[in-house]
């Protein structure tokens, strides 16, 4: 196997500019930006809170979609051929906030500190918090965050998580709410580990963001697909999930995303018994700031201008932390064009 070549634009390191760039977040956006910047002769250091670079590609997305080795070799090439230095297990933060995957970091560095030490800073920290649904019982034991569950499963396979942390899902009933890429991957992994999986979605398979193709593979594997249902409350017993109460929905007029809006039907409640419940209903941007150090929008995404620069001169941002949940290709695109801006800005052309 060959690694991804993040430095695909050049063969070897050109003459050094003497400029130093810190990148926060070693996902596809950060690594691709690093590849561009080293090809322009800048020195790049990458900070990430996880034990190794790769972001969601490495720690969440299943091996059959993106092989670990493909990402690992790519990150290693940047280190060995282009002198990129990684600072793993290092969370960058201005202010404080708990995010998913925080159990892996050992050090904290302040964003303002990096700004002082480097000529430019790029934030590419993605969407490492899970949206809460806000219904009664949504904090019961047995409700697992989709990211956490995937971290445990993949982290265990990568040797970072002890076996005891991975819940024994064999024969257990796992309910998943949502029908995006996350819901589907959680379903794949739980099914593989022997769970009885049921997916609950408020629209129909036609509107499902993961697409009918992926969902039908799961159905062929015995995953149950419930459409036109929405959760009303989680029912517990001794503090643990016992069942979920759902309402049937019907589709109304299209909403701002162009998909028909699901409308709950009053009086249509029914219950499904479960051992575990996963809300895969969306993820939230996690900028390395909590407070007013730099500008974010209503949904917590970092606000950037046409130069991909944040409200702080010299700090840029790219990838899902700016755009919300997208795909690897979109993160790579944003990483590339932001790196072009950083290079121009460092040369005084912007």
């Amino acid at each position: 196997m060959r690694g991804m070549k993040f430095s695909f634009l050049c063969r070897s390191k050109p003459e050094k500019t003497g400029k130093r760039v810190a990148i926060i977040g070693a996902g596809p956006a950060g690594l691709t930006a690093a590849g561009y910047l080293v090809c322009k002769g800048h020195d790049v250091d990458i900070y990430d809170k996880m034990p190794e670079p790769g972001g969601l590609m490495l720690f969440v997305i299943p091996e059959f979609r993106i092989p670990v080795e493909r990402v690992r070799l790519g990150a290693k090439e940047l280190e060995e051929e282009f002198e990129v230095t990684y600072y793993p297990k290092t969370k960058v933060m201005e202010g404080e906030r708990q995010d998913e995957g925080d159990e892996f970091y050992e050090r904290v560095v302040r964003l303002s500190e990096l700004k002082e030490k480097y000529d430019a800073v790029l934030i590419a920290t993605g969407i490492w918090n899970v949206r809460r649904i806000g219904i009664p019982g949504d904090d019961l034991e047995g409700i697992i965050s989709p990211l956490e569950l995937l971290f445990w499963i993949k982290g265990h396979e990568l040797g970072y998580v002890p076996k005891e942390k991975v819940p024994d899902l064999k024969g257990k009933k796992v309910g998943i709410i949502g029908a995006g890429l996350t819901a589907v991957d959680v379903a794949f992994e739980c099914n593989r580990l022997g769970a009885e999986v049921e997916i609950f979605y408020r629209r129909t398979i036609r509107e499902a963001p993961a697409g009918a193709y992926e969902i039908n593979i799961l159905r062929n594997r015995g995953v149950k697909w419930f459409e036109l249902v929405t959760p009303k409350r989680v029912i517990g017993e001794n503090g643990r999930v016992k069942a979920i109460e759902l309402l049937r929905t019907r589709l109304g007029e299209p909403d701002e995303t162009g998909r028909r809006r699901p409308i709950p039907i009053p009086g249509s409640e029914f219950q499904v018994e479960l051992d575990y419940l996963v809300f895969a209903i969306g993820m939230v941007s996690t900028p390395p700031v909590n407070g007013s150090y730099l500008a974010t929008d209503r949904r917590g995404r970092i606000v950037v201008d046409s130069r991909h620069m944040t409200s702080v001169e010299g700090i840029f941002a790219a990838g899902d932390v700016v755009n919300g949940p997208t795909k690897v290709g979109r993160a790579i695109k944003d990483g590339l064009y932001t790196a072009v801006s950083i290079d121009k800005w460092l040369r005084g052309e912007l």
Binding site: R2, M4, K5, F8, C10, R11, P67, R70, V328
Partner: peptide
């Protein structure tokens, strides 16, 4: 011509 391979093949994460 510069000794580089097609970009899509180098960067596809799924190989």
């Amino acid at each position: 011509e510069e000794g580089l391979e097609p970009a899509c093949a180098l960067m596809c994460p799924a190989e």
